[in-house]
């Protein structure tokens, strides 16, 4: 039963990711991405990593994607944005990247099909993760906190209403948000 669930979630994840990448409207793409992340969360849970699954939903889909949504709403692209997107995304655009990605995929498949290892089937409790995190990986935790601080400060500065360009004297006018 869990096995079927695993493959189903995998399929959903793949499908919604493909949809996310190929949409014209960024909001639609975002919704598909959230679905993909939820499918990933299910896969995490099935693989015996409940803590990671919850984190995926709470932080990744719940905070990061929501941030995306807010920014897209702030940008206020609208129907004009959709037209622009149509212009930019012609089929000819997909050829080069597709070729490269197919080649890369081929190589990855080639490597992966050479190994034969199954999963242990043991679930790992959050307690074990916590012990691991504040045990051997405590330094990583500290650095991550500094990284978050940097992100915070950067985000604050970059998200301000406007920044005046001292050199060119550019001052935002009413058209700027």
């Amino acid at each position: 039963m869990n096995l079927i669930l695993f493959y189903l979630a995998a399929a959903i994840s793949l499908g919604s990711t493909i949809m996310a990448v190929t949409r014209y409207n960024p909001s639609h793409g975002l919704i598909y991405l959230i679905i993909s992340l939820l499918a990933s969360a299910i896969i995490f849970y099935l693989l015996g990593a409940p803590f990671a699954a919850v984190l995926e939903i709470v932080i990744y889909a719940g905070a990061i994607m929501v941030l995306f949504v807010f920014v897209i709403m702030m940008l206020n692209l609208g129907a004009r944005g959709d037209e622009t997107e149509h212009r930019w995304l012609n089929p000819a655009m997909w050829i080069g990247p597709s070729v490269l990605c197919v080649l890369l995929l081929g190589e990855v498949v080639y490597i992966l099909l050479q190994t034969q290892q199954t999963l242990t089937g043991a679930a790992i409790s959050p307690k074990a993760v916590g012990l691991e995190l504040f045990g051997p990986y405590v330094l990583a935790v500290e650095i991550s906190s500094m990284l978050l601080l940097a992100g915070l400060v950067g985000g604050y500065h970059l998200g301000r209403r406007f920044l005046v360009d001292a050199r060119s004297g550019w001052v935002p006018d009413e058209a700027d948000q």
Binding site: L100, L104, E107, I111
Partner: peptide, 18 residues
């Protein structure tokens, strides 16, 4: 980004012996 991926493809191919 495209050139990076292209380089990656070639490099991995060399590593694999292809």
């Amino acid at each position: 980004a495209g050139t990076m991926v292209g380089g990656l493809v070639i490099f991995v191919a060399i590593l694999l012996g292809i």
